[in-house]
Design a protein around this nucleic acid. Sequence first.
DNA 1: AACACTTCTTAGCCTAGGCTAACTTTCAGA
DNA 2: TCTGAAAGTTAGCCTAGGCTAAGAAGTGTT
Lengths: 153, 153
Amino acid sequence: MTDSRVSMPRRSLPAAEDHAARFARQREADRTATAEDYVELIADLLREEGEARAVDLSRRMGVSQATVTATIGRLQRDGLVETKPYRGLFLTEAGTELATAAKSRHDLVVRFLIAVGLDAETAEQDAEGLEHHASDEALAAFARFLAKRDDPI
Amino acid sequence: MTDSRVSMPRRSLPAAEDHAARFARQREADRTATAEDYVELIADLLREEGEARAVDLSRRMGVSQATVTATIGRLQRDGLVETKPYRGLFLTEAGTELATAAKSRHDLVVRFLIAVGLDAETAEQDAEGLEHHASDEALAAFARFLAKRDDPI
DNA sequence: AACACTTCTTAGCCTAGGCTAACTTTCAGA
DNA sequence: TCTGAAAGTTAGCCTAGGCTAAGAAGTGTT
């Protein structure tokens, strides 16, 4: 039972509670990632195609229709989505807000990745994963980076 | 049924198959993230403390001991970890490789985040999530960015 | 109006990754 | 040595998010 608060030697590991907090935050982000992906995609489809049908989500998420039905059920339960059976999907107020936030985060991450040297396609690919795990502080830093690059001095 | 290949107007959505491929890649990364976190932590504990006990993983991951037992079981099944009951955890060859790769990716992401303006603690926090979702191309770009910054000709 | 096709839902299954409660094993100190 | 605390395991539960197969509900064409 070594007490790292006393000796403080060549420790690179953070305190256990801090370490645990990081992972907890991570698990939280994982839980919200699916919801964000779905509402973001629904918003995109509504904007670009005029309607968001479950079958389109199924195709674009690469997932069975049964899975979409189940997921939409959870989003509905959580007050993010409304459905009119056989009439496509709609976002609630909360869903729209979440989608807007997700999209602006997504776009920021894409622009940042391109700025540090990724090609557009890879940037899109990576943003899909990174957008859910970047903290507000990180996003702010990305934005500062872009601002400085666009307007040096 | 609009055919976006024909008109090609103000579409910002990628082709459905490409879109699906992104999400598939994402789900793949999610599946490997837990394994990477565990072997990385086990490697750290072995290096820093001389042994990796399940109870330490439990504390540092912020998860019950029962959950650790179950997860370790999966890692063992997948050939990443070996256990001697009541004797701590050890990495297999494959586990060690994975841990090494994960750690170097983690460190690269941390250094990159600091370089773009995050403080050390936030960088560590964010790296925990981002390291599993950055492609090799992105990591290469991060490395180039660091190299250029450290040695601007 | 009827038929076929597409869309959506339902039922039943699975794995990963969480939990608590209860039990077993090990270890250290009196 | 024995005994209590710590460590580890087991059993039983849960949710999210996948799947397939089968059935129901619209839609469109003739």
